[in-house]
Amino acid sequence: MELNTLHTENTVNLDIVDQVVASIGQVLLGKQNQVKLALACILARGHLLIEDMPGMGKTTLAQAVADVLGLSYKRVQFTSDLLPADLLGISIFNKQQNAFEFHHGPIFTQLLLADEINRASAKTQSALLEAMEEQQVSIEGETRLLADPFFVIATQNPSNYSGTYSLPESQLDRFTMRISLGFPSREAERSMLLKMAQKEVSPEQGNARERLPAQLSRAQLKELQQQVVKVSVSDHILDYLQRLISFTREDSQFSFGVSPRGSMALLSAAKAWALLEKRDFLLPEDIQQVFGAVIGHRLSGASNSGNSEQMSRYILEQVDVLY
């Protein structure tokens, strides 16, 4: 398609987006679509949930995104005995000063990697999710603002894995997107293996993080997010979006339709996707690209990803794009 309209005034050169995608692509081979979705999610100021089996590169993707966007990040490995205080921070009595001193928890960062979020108890999960929604936490009666921007990239194992507390629908709804990575292609895996073989590194070292250089400055990220907001949306697009959403509410297959929060998330994620496509207006294609990731986890009755993928494809096939 040759419809790309380049921005001229006062904007970040959108080519930089390609660089970001390419940079992350170095560590996550053959997963360009997922990388773009993750980026779109960040640009739409949303939180991202990555769901897949262990060893599929969830954490790698999360770390790469953090690195490339130049964000300060902390990583928390969620376990069943993780307490909210471990996440938010705690006040400890300082004997010298004879006063309580607040020790900031890992949540006070720009990008939080919540690894295996569904291993933590519901109590801890909800502490995190509250912070995601409000962008602030209340600790010991004091409200503390979180960093701006504040993103959560959470990873989780499919809920039928042992030792997991699956996230309830209400909490899933707070994630703008849920993506899964899936097995790499044959070629991608080959080159991954080749790389390891040539470098002759041990598996441990291979897994050890190699940090990517930051591609975006804070200001550039902010500017990109501004541009996402400015992407223009025509009435026809809104009609289409509403048709999609109301289909989920009216079709008998779904016990609950998509919430208004879901439809807003869909719109902003699609706008971010349009920006990644270097366009300043929204096309139905953008909505279709992000639809599965945004809607899949919000559809009741579609708990595992395979099912939700089928469902979102079904919706896209049923709903007329034009009228």
Binding site: P284, E317, V321, L322
Partner: peptide, 10 residues
């Protein structure tokens, strides 16, 4: 023939 879920450009 246009399919329902097909976008205009496709």
């Amino acid at each position: 023939e246009r399919a329902a879920g097909e976008t205009l450009s496709v």
